[in-house]
Design a protein around this nucleic acid. Structure first.
Length: 479
DNA sequence: ATGTTC
């Protein structure tokens, strides 16, 4: 993309006007600075963002975050709101991994008290948490009824009916761990079958479970509200809806590809396949997508349960641990949200909802600080805790970034560094790593990602999230 | 991201 086409509309917001191409309905905007734009222009993400502006019913602008990169149809790191009732919903704007997201746990454990126990802890976590591509979990839902309970009942079902986790966990999950609108009738048997033994599994790719130390605070009041104390351990869980969500996405992409002509929708890229939210197919996808989102919240809930079991077993005697959910955010999802009295279908793909203090669905404990947001760095680099701002409503449709953002393909990363070499490098920095595959490890090498500090600084300077804390990894479990 | 090209 030629950067001369971009107009600077705010200090950290650039715009490609709607008249740049005949088929654009709204402008494309990107939250970035000059140095990030130099990286962003090299892949097709800005062209993809322009394609998104052609969606029927799109409002405001298609918005890119500083961690934007190329994805399926939509870029990863993008936000698009379509006006209801007739605006479209597009599976490519949500992603194959429906409700991929991040959950942070605080432990109350002081790192220096357990320094020599990190290695056995990470080892035991790796035994308790199945990871890697295609791996199944230890908890196989006994019958179809249980699968359906999870898909429609979300985390409250898991806590109340199956006894997985604590009742207090529920309010510290986005949407209470249960998205209203889930409908199991619209989830294919094949999708349910794929999900049946995958609850409580990490998966592959960039999914991970990390043991971290709270390294630095930027906002002491917000950190206190979240129970984040420097020197204490946290656990960050990054995973999604596994094969179940993938199958839901595949099923509906195929169907939308067929029905688009019936709605007279023509788009510059078939990967943008979509259907009006008011259409029969659109309603079915929305119901299935919400169900897959509930599955993902439940996946992170089962993993939380595993972490609690392992910490109690490994460190229980040594410390007074209290493993609690700080918050759980989705970063691949579409939700119905209101702006100025109208309803929109807000697609966030590789973008995080970032509600400021005045928005609903922020837990009472965070009423004064805003909704927590977690930005995982690449493997072995720091992660960040942020909070949403009220400014984000107008600037970014209550959204912020989701991670460092890939800057090198998986193949390119493997050419640059081997898994063995990377293991050594992480070990030399005192990070315990458990990963079954050297190849997968290399694909996630830090050099394949943008600088997360830069990404976080840009969203913070743009006013769409505030920095609260930095978390430094001491143990990583990968797929 | 993904029973890795139904």
């Amino acid at each position: 993309m030629d950067l001369s086409k971009l107009e600077r509309v705010e200090e950290f917001i650039y715009e490609i006007p709607a008249d740049y191409r005949d088929d654009m309905n709204v402008p494309a905007r990107i939250v970035a600075d000059r140095s990030l734009l130099e990286q962003i222009k090299d892949d097709l993400s800005l062209e993809q963002l322009i394609n998104v502006t052609t969606l029927p019913g799109i409002a405001f602008w298609a918005l890119g975050m500083p961690d934007i990169h190329q994805g399926y149809g939509f870029p990863v790191g993008g936000v698009a709101a379509t006006k209801l009732p007739d605006g479209v919903i597009s599976p490519g704007g949500i992603g194959f991994d429906i409700n991929c997201g991040v959950r942070l746990l605080r432990t109350g454990i002081v790192h220096r008290d357990v320094r020599d126990k990190i290695e056995p802890l990470v080892h035991e976590l790796s035994r308790s948490v199945p990871s890697g591509y295609g791996r199944s979990g230890r908890l196989t839902l006994a019958n179809a009824q249980m699968v359906e309970g999870v898909l429609e009942g979300g985390v409250p079902y898991l806590v109340e009916r199956i006894g997985v986790g604590e009742p207090d966990d529920v309010e510290f999950i986005e949407s209470g761990g249960r998205i209203d609108g889930a409908n199991i009738a619209f989830v294919s048997e094949k999708a349910k079958q794929r999900g049946r033994d995958q609850l409580g599994t990490l998966g592959g790719g960039n999914h991970f479970l990390e043991v971290q130390v709270i390294d630095e605070l930027f906002d002491e009041a917000a950190a206190e509200a979240m129970g984040l104390v420097p020197g204490e351990l946290t656990v960050l869980i990054h995973t999604g809806s596994r094969g179940l969500g993938h199958q839901v996405c595949t099923d509906y992409l195929r169907e939308f590809g067929r029905v688009m002509a019936e709605h007279d929708i023509e788009l510059p890229d078939r990967q943008l396949a979509c259907a009006p939210m008011s259409s029969e197919a659109g309603k079915r996808y929305f119901g299935a997508m919400c169900a897959a989102a509930n599955f993902a919240f439940c996946n992170r809930q089962v993993l939380t349960h595993r972490v609690r079991q392992v910490i109690a077993r490994e460190l229980g005697e040594a410390v007074d641990a209290k493993v609690e959910v700080v918050y759980d955010v989705a970063h691949n999802i579409a939700k119905v949200e209101e702006f100025d009295g109208d309803e929109y279908c807000v697609h966030r793909k590789g973008a995080t909802r970032a509600f400021g203090p005045s928005m609903p669905d922020v837990p009472t404990a965070y009423r004064d600080i805003g909704q927590p947001v977690f930005i995982p760095g690449s493997m072995g680099t720091s992660s960040f805790v942020l909070v949403g701002t009220d400014e984000a409503a107008a600037a970014s449709l209550n959204s912020t970034c989701h991670g460092a953002g890939r800057q090198m393909s998986r193949t390119a990363a493997k050419k640059r560094i081997g898994g063995k070499e990377l293991r050594k490098e992480l070990a030399s920095r005192g990070i315990v790593v458990r990963c079954p595959s050297n190849a997968e490890l290399a694909e996630e090498a830090p050099l394949a990602y943008k600088d997360v500090d830069r990404v976080v600084d840009v969203v913070s300077q743009a006013g769409i999230a505030n920095k609260v804390a930095r978390l430094r990894p001491v143990g990583v479990l990968k797929g």
